[in-house]
Amino acid sequence: MKIPQDIDRLLWSVAEQHDPRAFDEFAERYPAYKDELVARTKLVRSLRGARPNRDVPVFNLPQAHRAQSRARMFQVFALGALVVVAAASVGVTVFRHQATSSRQTPPVSSPASQQHGSMLPHSNQLPPETVGPKRVGQSAPVTPHPVQPAQAPDPFGRLVTVDEEGAALSQVLRDIAHQAGIHLEFAPGMSEETVNVRYMALPAKLAFEDLGQNFGISVVVQEGSRALVIPAIDSSRPVVTLPDGSYSEPAEPATGSSDQARTPGLNHTDGRH
């Protein structure tokens, strides 16, 4: 008996449903296919009835796989630990760097006159990372200067920090003196040059020398913390002259400052200027 395709599909559908009402409806509607439906229903029931029903046995992972699994877990743990250590290391490094940076100040000095043009030389007495003074318009690289633990008892050895732009030279000198606790006096004829200065944590003596080298002034220490600024320089003597007649280490002659006024013999300690 040839069964039409749609009836065939319906037959399987009803046979698989296990719904007595659907069975009766189909049998009533297509009585010619009732036997076929009965046969298919039996077949489906037999097939479904043959479904195995087994208790679930214990699943034993072989030792090798268990060890492999543990090794994998250990690898994951080790990798995680490594990442944590690396992150902690980076964190500590960054923190220390920030802490160090916050304690350090970039010691750059760049005094300059308003005359744009020639660059003034470095002072040898400045720390290696300190850049010599420059005239206005020239920039100096900023580099950190190590912090000194305590201020020196000698006022000229005390650290000063000056960061001024377009300030009068005399004002800069006063600021340095004020920070170092030095009483400064000025001889007549001081230049009123405007300078840009950045000294960071630099001994006052070096700051004076640096300015003296570049702007033709001498600082004569009179007694204790008193000093006299003279608007001239003796190229054979140091810029800063101590009261006992000794000199501080002379600064490197300013190769680019030959055009500046220098008056020999003006930085003696006997006051005969």
């Binding site: 097939l47 009835g49 043959a50």
Partner: peptide, 8 residues
């Protein structure tokens, strides 16, 4: 195993 139709 429940008894099943051996013909299946």
């Amino acid at each position: 195993e429940p008894e099943t139709d051996p013909m299946v």
